[in-house]
Amino acid sequence: MTAPTTLDPRTKLVMVLCLSSLAVFIRDIYVLVGVLLLSFLISVILKGNLFPAFKQMKRLLLLIVVVAVAQSLFAPAGRTIVALGTVPILTTGGLIQGAEFILRMAVIVVSATIVATSSYREIVQGLVQWKIPYEIAFMVSVAIRFLPMLIEEIKDVMLAIQLRGVELQKIPLRKRLRIYSYILTPIVIGTVIKAEKLAAAMETRAFRAYPQRTSYMILKMASIDYMLISFSMLAFISVVIVYYMWGI
């Protein structure tokens, strides 16, 4: 493959859409593992930033236990591994369900790293060239861009509170919720003010002056893009067909 990082963002979006819909539809753990491996491979080839994704997934691993136990309790299936009297706490069915859940999440997390190898300006342009109104594409992209800033701010405030010796874990839930609202209110207000200022700055630079706008950046699909898009859709459709004909 030649210079794969220069793939059109639309190609990446199509690939990612195929991968994540497969992840959602498929109920076969082996196929799911395959989809996840494929997502990994694509992300690695495109030089995706997988490190934060790994960190996120580590946190998700805890969820596997929760999902497995919940599934075992409410929809017991397979062999019982742990039981409390006659109530099954953990079944093989539940364990598999939990694992599938995590695999699905992992595919989505890895997919996000694939999309993120394009700058969001390119993604917006991709969407616009797909005839999505630029206001919507633009607003979504600005929101996505400022989200990490918001998260950082919340983390900072939480840290500041904990540094003052407040142990949030030890405070009863109702009181803790009140503390959270004290923390979040100024942050939300600050964010709204920032957003208003940003909107005003955009307005003075003629944002939404006309229903259309030109674009200095123009995306052009290369033959590799067409190939990958056709291949992804074909693969997606054939997996769905094969899966539903043989699986059910």
Binding site: S119, R145, A209, Y210, R213, T214, Y216, M217
Partner: peptide, 18 residues
């Protein structure tokens, strides 16, 4: 609010359909 300096400067003229 743009990913590159170039995009930032292009933003205004793009809105004016230049």
């Amino acid at each position: 609010f743009s990913p590159t300096v170039e995009d930032e400067i292009a933003f205004g003229p793009e809105n004016l359909c230049i």
